[in-house]
């Protein structure tokens, strides 16, 4: 079974390996699926754990995530989305679904996973589009601090307006207005740069 050869460490090679594993998984290749799991489990588990808050919940969600990946892999279009973005989006959306269905357990577990959020960009960073990233970060820097922080918190925590307002101790309307104004400015900034 082809687990990562030591020579391929460049981002392009990592990306190609992921694409290959997803496409083969789409053909119901179990060995490729296992390879895909080994290449991506830590990344996707980091996302699930951050959003779900406890290892137990995050492992249940992670199992769902890989079963979804197994079924959807046949529809993956390599030209449309980067492989890690495609996988991470499935993980984040599934973890958010879990949060919405288990609000009490989710709130209790947040502290346990808080330190997962702001880890430094890791090896997977190389799989993402660096140019896109610079643009977003540049535009984010132009936002007021509360706008920037709440948009980031929303993304990393997978939380609703109501939860965000609760955590910051501000009225719901204030929270909505921060994020909406932030999104509007981000939109203008990202469009100007395009």
């Amino acid at each position: 079974m082809a687990s990562a050869p030591a020579s391929t460490t460049a981002p392009d090679a990592a990306r190609a390996r992921l694409v290959e594993a997803i496409v083969a998984t789409g053909g119901e290749d179990r060995a490729a699926f296992q390879r895909l799991y080994r290449l991506t489990r830590a990344k996707l588990f980091g996302i699930c754990l951050r959003i779900c808050g406890t290892r137990e919940a995050a492992e249940d969600v992670l199992q769902d995530v890989y079963l979804i990946i197994w079924r959807r892999a046949g529809g993956y279009e390599p030209g449309r989305a980067s492989p890690i973005t495609w996988l991470a989006t499935i993980a984040r959306n599934r973890a958010i679904d879990w949060r919405r269905a288990n609000p009490v357990r989710a709130a209790a577990g947040v502290e346990e996973a808080a330190d997962v959020a702001d880890a430094r960009p890791d090896a997977a960073a190389g799989m993402l589009d660096a140019e896109e990233g610079r643009r977003l970060h540049l535009c984010l820097d132009q936002l007021e601090p509360p706008q920037r922080e709440t948009i980031r918190t929303a993304f990393f925590g997978g939380v609703t307006y109501a939860e965000l307002a609760d955590r910051r101790g501000v009225p719901l309307g204030t929270m909505k207005s921060w994020i909406r104004r932030g999104l509007l400015r981000l939109r203008d900034c990202l469009r100007d740069d395009a």
């Binding site: 296992q34 799991y37 080994r38 489990r41 830590a42 990344k43 588990f45 980091g46 996302i47 754990l49 951050r50 290892r55 995050a58 492992e59 992670l62 199992q63 890989y66 079963l67 980067s82 890690i84 973005t85 991470a88 989006t89 984040r92 330190d115 997962v116 959020a117 702001d118 880890a119 430094r120 960009p121 890791d122 090896a123 997977a124 960073a125 993402l128 589009d129 896109e132 990233g133 977003l136 970060h137 980031r152 993304f155 990393f156 981000l186 990202l190």
Partner: peptide, 22 residues
């Protein structure tokens, strides 16, 4: 746009038994 943030989620190893379960 938001996908660039995926790079900042830290990696965490799940339970080793999960692979077999999945």
């Amino acid at each position: 746009h938001f996908a660039v943030w995926f790079a900042e989620f830290g990696e965490v190893e799940p339970d080793p038994g999960l692979e077999e379960r999945i």
